[in-house]
Design a protein around this nucleic acid. Structure first.
Length: 512
RNA sequence: CGGGGUGUAGCUUAGCUUGGUAGAGCGCCUGGUUUGGGACCAGGAGGUCGGAGGUUCAAAUCCUCUCGCCCCGACCA
């Protein structure tokens, strides 16, 4: 470090290129989004983080409703026997289940609380790691005729997966998500549903989260336990790793057979339903952070920001204080009459008794899209100072206060667009066509093995389709096939691992 | 669960090798000076040094056990 010119001071230490995982944690902390709890692997989502989740929820929910889905709620506890019904499913989730075995506590001989031996459950309950089985068992009761189909239901819930190595938002033992579960009369209809919901996720990621994603299908080894096909959206974040941002599964008749979702068809035959499931989780918040934040903290796409505009009254002298505050609230009121994508613009006047600089930096670190300062001089001149989080922290523009409210929606959209363009450019710069094994290994090998720099990215390379080649790469480089992208064109090629012929390129990357 | 590391105030940590029962910075509280900016000065609150046992006149410091956390692996939205 000593031989370098000092980098400009940033709000977050370390910077991204110094230590990305640590930077991530510091951004979460500086933005006051969440913190680790006393329960291992579980996080407390604080108001600013939860506000982002609420925005995600609200907007996705609207999209689900628009595609014909309704919300419902199913039990948190799943009888262990349900999980056993689908072989691949048990296999996939058994190792990470929290299990309830008792229903009462008592004081033991050592004076400490313990589960009362007499209260042991005849059948242990699993805390849902996902709800296919219990929802399947319920649907089985609901469905008798083809006229009962389709069932199009979504659930907003928490799930528990006992992960070994938790990371705030990205991998926690308990997390919040939505899981859609649908049942259909035909295979074609279920596949159409699976693809439609992936499309919803893609649109949401692009338009709301300002994150470009690749849509595609998982290879067999990465498929959801029990699914026939797993579709996904894959995003690139700033350490050039991939993160699965959403999945949509075509479950075939696997769960219908396991749960007994049968119906009498139009022809009078008894048939099994075709089911799907699809979900996104609080992991999206982690994805947002890693995709957009910079060395001064979070940068929120306006569409999912809990607060769009923060007004910071500058009150240096007691005699002008009241006038400044009044003007600030008046401006806030005017901006609130504006709409951004159909919703009122959310404005907060921060008049806490703290130094102006402190407050300004707090909002920078939280990633509020727009900060507006209004002080005595502005009052005299009829201006305000506007700062955008997608520009430099010191950059501010003095604008006539009267015209400002009407311009806010356009400014927010401009920030939204800038973030998307930036993320897209970054992803495209770091996505390569790779055609040889040597080039592939070189692409994914850091120059300094002891302290790996940010390297690699997405490689679009040919693959013969066999699991063995996939495994070799995973073992050697920790690189996996993220998906078989839908946009892949047919071309003659050779598998980068074994050289066998291949018709299409797949997407390879290190991943979260 | 395997390998490595670590545990001192809310956070970051000094002290531990050479035992003498804690020191700093940030944050917090109070007062004052400041004010288009993460300010300054003064005063103050806050720690049974992860826990249990042992050695000793005396343990944050030495020994034993135990628990938590972090990193690397296996697993994952």
């Amino acid at each position: 470090m000593s031989d370098q010119t000092p980098a400009p001071k940033t709000a977050i230490t370390p910077r991204r290129e110094q230590d990305f995982p640590e930077w991530y944690q510091q951004v979460v902390r500086a933005a006051d989004m969440a913190e680790a709890s006393d329960v291992r692997g579980c996080m407390v989502i604080k108001p600013w983080g939860y506000g982002i989740w609420e925005a995600i929820q609200q907007q996705l929910d609207r999209m689900f409703k628009a595609t014909g889905h309704k919300n419902a709620y199913f039990p948190l506890f799943i009888p262990i026997s349900y999980l056993e019904k689908e072989a691949a499913h048990v296999e996939g989730f058994a190792k990470e289940c929290a299990v309830v075995t008792h229903h009462r506590l008592e004081v033991g001989p050592d004076g400490k609380m313990r589960p009362a031996p007499a209260s042991e459950l005849t059948e242990p309950l699993v805390v849902r790691p996902t709800s296919e089985t219990i929802i399947g068992a319920t649907y089985a009761k609901w469905v008798q005729s083809y006229r009962d189909l389709p069932i199009l239901i979504n659930q907003w819930a928490n799930v528990v997966r006992w992960e070994m190595r938790p990371r705030v938002f990205l991998r926690t033992a308990e997390f919040l998500w939505q899981e859609g579960h649908t049942a259909h009369e035909t295979r074609e209809e279920a596949i159409e549903e699976t693809e439609k919901m992936l499309g919803v996720y893609e649109t949401f990621a692009r338009e709301h989260l300002a994150i470009p994603v690749y849509c595609g299908e998982k290879s067999e080894s990465e498929r959801f336990p029990g699914a026939d096909r797993t579709l996904c959206i894959e995003a690139m974040v700033q350490d050039r790793k991939a993160i699965q941002a959403g999945t949509s599964h075509f479950l075939g008749q696997n769960f219908a057979k396991a749960s007994g979702i049968k119906f009498q068809s139009r022809e009078g035959r008894e048939e099994f339903a075709w089911t799907t499931s699809w979900g996104v989780s609080t992991r999206l918040i982690g994805t947002l952070i890693m995709a957009h934040a910079d060395d001064d903290g979070m940068i929120l796409p306006p569409r999912v920001a809990p607060t769009h505009v923060v007004i910071l009254p500058v009150t240096p002298k007691p005699d002008t204080r009241d006038a400044v505050l009044e003007a600030a609230h008046k401006l806030a009121g005017e901006i609130r009459t504006q709409r951004f994508h159909g919703e009122p613009v959310v404005v907060e006047v921060d008049q806490r008794d703290l130094g102006g600089g402190t407050k300004n930096w707090e909002w920078i670190k939280k990633g509020a899209p727009v900060r507006i300062e209004i002080g005595p001089r502005d009052l005299a001149q009829g201006t305000v100072a506007l700062a955008r989080r997608d520009r430099g922290t010191k950059e501010k523009e003095f604008l006539p206060a009267a015209d400002l409210p009407a311009q806010i929606p356009a400014i927010l959209q401009s920030i939204q667009d800038t973030l998307y363009a930036r993320a897209l450019a970054y992803r495209d710069e770091n996505t390569r066509l790779v055609d040889s094994r040597e080039a592939f290994y070189a692409f994914f090998t850091p120059k300094d093995a002891n302290k790996p720099e940010i390297h690699g990215g997405f490689a679009r390379a040919h693959w013969c389709g066999c699991g063995k080649c996939e495994e070799v790469i995973k073992t050697d480089l920790k690189v996996t096939i993220r998906c078989l992208p839908f946009d892949a064109v047919e071309e003659e090629g050779a598998c980068v691992v074994c050289g066998s012929p291949s018709k299409k390129r797949v997407l390879w990357a290190k991943s979260y």
